[in-house]
């Protein structure tokens, strides 16, 4: 009889990488569903195209480096879906393909695949297209256009390597009331008009594909955290520090700076805090480090929004947080058991 020889522990938990990642994808489905309901075919096409691009790129790099397929760990799917959710619904599909390819290739494969990447791949993809296609990425279209389920936004099907057509005329035809063509953040920055919390919560605003309803994202995040597939401390730290910073600014100058609720609910902060900052591979592992990292992202987001040239700061804030993660980890190593000052018995 041959006996198995193995070292302890002989019992391990049932959790594994694919299960965790799969649940992240599942929890994103309501967000995707909501955006497709709002933006119709264009949003659907964008989601599918980018996710497929990410998966194909991942597979291609597996093959090129003679590694077993890593499609099954679901991480490329997360990158694809998240990336699509941060882009405007009118984003041309061919540019989406570029974004997806860059996200996986530069953001992940180049570092050595899942776990070794320093930056959140989806944000790398987004940062790249933001620099490459500044117009397309700030072209907004109204939600709930009448025939959104039967026709694409004209820009969606732009021929590869071509610049997208102007959508102003098309938007006019849709005759959607009160469409401004600018996001709430841009309107605050340039016109000093703040959107109501109610609109921001429910998603009745102009925004990227998946950033409209802060409430929905929050609920999905709560589900993930409750099932312990996400570290709840990070979104709490991000949102908490962002709210605190915004509150201090408002105290200082209530006429100029918006309420903390506006800061929390507008733009990509909710999606970023719940789904991007929590990317395991690019966030700290130490208990203290997690709080510092989250707080840093919150503060940076508000600072960039208020004082940077851009309307939105979440993406860069998280990328900076990612870059600092190794250092945060380094300086917040846990205190080893038995090294505390001896207590008097």
């Amino acid at each position: 009889m041959s006996m198995e020889l193995r070292t302890s522990p002989h019992q391990i938990s049932e959790r594994n990488v694919p299960t965790i990642m799969k649940h992240v994808v599942l929890s994103l489905l309501p967000v995707c569903g909501f955006s497709v309901w709002q933006y119709g075919l264009s949003a659907l096409a964008l989601l599918l195209t980018i996710t497929a691009t990410c998966l194909l790129t991942e597979r291609w790099f597996n093959r090129a480096s003679a590694q077993p397929s890593s499609i099954g760990d679901w991480s490329a799917t997360i990158t694809g879906v998240l990336l699509a959710l941060t882009l405007p619904p009118s984003f041309p599909l061919w540019m989406g393909v570029v974004a997806g390819f860059v996200a996986i290739a530069l953001g992940k494969a180049l570092f050595g695949g899942l776990g070794n990447n320093v930056f959140n791949p989806a944000l790398i993809g987004r940062a790249f297209v933001q620099a490459a296609f500044p117009v397309a990425i700030t072209t907004w279209v109204p939600a709930f256009a009448a025939n959104r389920f039967s026709e694409f936004v004209p820009t969606t099907l732009t021929a590869p390597l071509m610049m997208p057509p102007d959508v102003v005329e098309w938007v006019k035809q849709q005759s959607v009331d009160a469409f401004t063509g600018a996001t709430p953040l841009a309107r605050w920055k340039f016109e000093n008009i703040t959107a109501s919390a109610q609109d921001l919560l429910s998603g009745a605003v102009t925004a990227s594909t998946g950033e409209t309803s802060a409430l929905l994202i929050l609920l999905c995040g709560v589900y993930l955290a409750a099932r312990k597939f996400m570290d709840w401390r990070i979104p709490l730290a991000v949102l908490g520090s962002a709210a605190l910073t915004a509150w201090l600014f408002q105290l200082y100058n209530p006429a100029h700076f918006p309420a903390p609720t506006f800061v929390l609910l507008s733009g990509g902060l909710m999606l970023g805090a719940v789904y991007m900052a929590t990317d395991m591979a690019t966030s700290p592992v130490t208990p203290v480090g997690v709080w510092i990292y989250g707080a840093l992202i919150g503060v940076l987001t508000v600072m960039i929004r208020y004082f940077g040239g851009l309307t939105e700061g979440v993406m860069y804030a998280i990328l900076i947080g990612n870059a600092l993660t190794p250092f945060i980890d380094q300086y917040t190593q846990p205190r080893v058991f038995g090294t505390r000052q001896k207590r008097k018995p």
Partner: peptide, 22 residues
């Protein structure tokens, strides 16, 4: 076996407060 995804679970459970991930 996958690469370490730095989930921090090991750090959260180590009774000696070590950093098994690192």
């Amino acid at each position: 076996v996958y690469a370490c995804i730095k989930c921090g679970e090991c750090v959260n459970v180590c009774p000696k407060f070590l950093n098994p991930s690192q």
